[in-house]
Structures are given as C-alpha cells and as structure tokens.
C-alpha cells in the first residue's frame, strides 16, 4: 500500500530554454486536500498539467499510486479547470451523461450519480436547462460536477471559487470537505484565495519560478514563517517608509520587515514585547507613527514572505 497517491520525481518542463518547472519533487498523500499555491506564472498549471497527464515533462517522472502516469486508468483523475469548460447547447444533465459515457460509467450508476451531484451542488432544478442559460455560479458548479461524474480517486480543482459569491463559495467549500471526509478522495486545490487554502488544505505547497519553496501544513507554515505575529505600521509620512525600513532591518529581534500597500509589515516572535523598542528606534529618527496594529500571521503573509511583493504577469 502506497501512502502517496501522487509522486512527482524531479519533474522539469522546459520551453525553448526557459524552465517553467524546475526539478519539482512532490508527494501527495491519499485522502488529503493538497493546496498548491504560487503567484501567476509560478508553474502551478504546468505542474498540474504534468501530474494529470495532459503535458509530458521534459525530464523526471510521475507515479500515480505507484504506476507511471502514462499507464494509469484515466478514470483515476478528474480535473475541474479554472475556465468554464462546458458545452453550451447541452443541458446540465446531458453534459454529465456525456462525460459519464466517456468514462464508461454504467447507465444506472451514471443516472444515480448525475442526480446526486446535481443535488449536492444545488443544480437539481436546472438539470434540464441548457448550459447557455445557467448563471455564472451555476456554470462553475457544473464545471466541478463534470470532473466528478466518474468518481475519480484524485480530484484536481484549479481555482474553483473564481468569480463565486460568498454563498456559493461556502457551498463549494463544504462540498470539497465532503469529498475528503465522506468519500476519501484526494483533492489538489490551486487557489489565489489564501483563506480558502488555509481553511481547506491539509498541506500546502508554495512554488515560485518552477521550484518548490515550502511544503507543510498551514499551521506549520504560519508558525515557521514570521514566527507568529505581524506588526502593521502606518507612518504619518509615507516618504519616510524607506528610512524606517532600514532602521527596522537593523534590529536583531525582528525577523523581517517589508512594505505592503504603503504599510510596513514587521514580523517578530512575541511582537507585543518588541513594540516599545520598535517605537523608540523610529522616534529617535523623528519618524512619527500614525497607526499601529498587531495581528496574527496569516497564510498570505507567508505567501508574500516567500514569493515577494513584485507584480507577476
């Protein structure tokens, strides 16, 4: 019995000398929700495409439950792409039946499964509605249902909550949890919503420039990076941000300091005890503080800490 259902070994993908993915090693456990994070262009989609067999790696190999990806039963994986991939002139039920047929799902099982998925995703009233006439949220839920109609072992969800309202997002989150808890599925989740990744993922991988930066549970990531707390400082004069940044960087008791949205984010262990010395050092240089707050470290802080604040294309 293999603990890891996906084992990506040293996978690399090169395009004309550019390494989109660079020697990525990744093991995903059976029955976990695996968060896959990275800025735009970090290599997430390329990595996932290789892990589901849509793209051949330039080097390295991928094992699915111990079997080479090229030789696996295609029914093992279900992918819910980021884009809405639907046939507009079919109804919701017809779309599900089509995909069921493509995976050789027996007729009676298919019928039952299609109705259950429609019900679970609150689409049962739209079973016979043409996709073209569904709302954006309904289309996104159908997009997900199509990835699950063959009951795959591994479900890949590529930014599934993109464009969803908070209500629909909660429906989706509950559904993802039920996939893991009730059905024992392995879920790979890519998202730009850090709270979503934090709430749903058992483990999270953060990649950038095609390389794995960190892989751990959300709790450990938040604990390890920034060691606990964040002090957010807003200066009276934002032109002094750079000077303040240099002063704070000199302080030994501070883990890191970066500028985000005109504010200085200072990470330090037991930040409250460091506040007097932070304020003293700044006041000595006649830098006045307009606002100051202390909050717990978030996954977004970890993400920014690891991948930087530079804009990605």
């Amino acid at each position: 019995m293999n603990d890891y259902i996906i084992d990506a070994q040293e996978i690399t993908k090169e395009y004309d000398g550019f390494k989109a993915v660079d020697g990525l090693n990744l093991q995903i456990k059976k029955g976990e929700v695996f968060g896959f994070l990275g800025p735009n262009g970090a290599g997430k989609t390329t990595s996932i495409s290789m892990m589901v067999g849509l793209l051949k790696p330039t080097s390295g190999q991928i094992l699915i439950d111990g079997v080479k990806i090229e030789k696996i039963d295609k029914g093992m994986i279900g992918i819910c792409p980021q884009e809405l991939v639907l046939w507009e002139h079919l109804t919701s039920l017809e779309s599900l039946k089509l995909m069921g047929d493509m995976y050789d799902v027996p007729g009676d099982v298919l019928k039952e499964r299609a109705h259950k998925l429609l019900e679970d995703l609150f689409l049962d009233e739209k079973a016979n509605t043409l996709v073209i006439n569904l709302s954006g949220g309904m289309k996104r839920r159908l997009n997900l249902a199509l990835a699950l109609i063959h009951s795959p072992e591994i479900v890949v969800l590529d930014e599934p909550s993109e464009g969803l309202d908070p209500q629909s997002r909660r429906v989706l989150w509950n559904f993802i949890n039920s996939l893991r808890d009730d059905e024992g599925k392995t879920v790979i989740l890519t998202t730009h919503l850090m709270d979503e990744a934090d709430k749903l993922s058992d483990r999270i991988a953060i990649i950038d420039h095609g390389k794995l930066l960190r892989l751990d549970t959300p709790e450990n990531l938040k604990k390890d990076i920034g060691e606990g707390d964040v002090v957010e400082i807003l200066l009276s004069n934002s032109e002094e941000n750079n000077d303040a940044l240099n002063i704070l960087k000199e302080m030994e008791e501070i883990e890191s300091v970066i500028e985000i949205n005109n504010k200085l984010d200072v990470r330090a262990l037991n930040a409250v005890s460091k506040l007097p010395s932070i304020m003293k050092n700044l006041e000595e240089e006649k830098i006045s503080i307009e606002d100051l707050s202390v909050r717990q470290n978030t996954l977004e802080d970890v993400f920014i800490e690891l991948t930087g604040t530079g804009l990605r294309e």
Partner: peptide
Amino acid sequence: ESGTLKRLKLSKMRSFD
C-alpha cells in the same frame, strides 16, 4: 479553444470515438 476537447481528452474517449 473552449477546452472541451481537453476535457474529453482526459477521459477514456479515443480519437476514433
């Protein structure tokens, strides 16, 4: 373009089908 072929490609459908 719409990606539906990719969806079908991931399934057990053959080119012939």
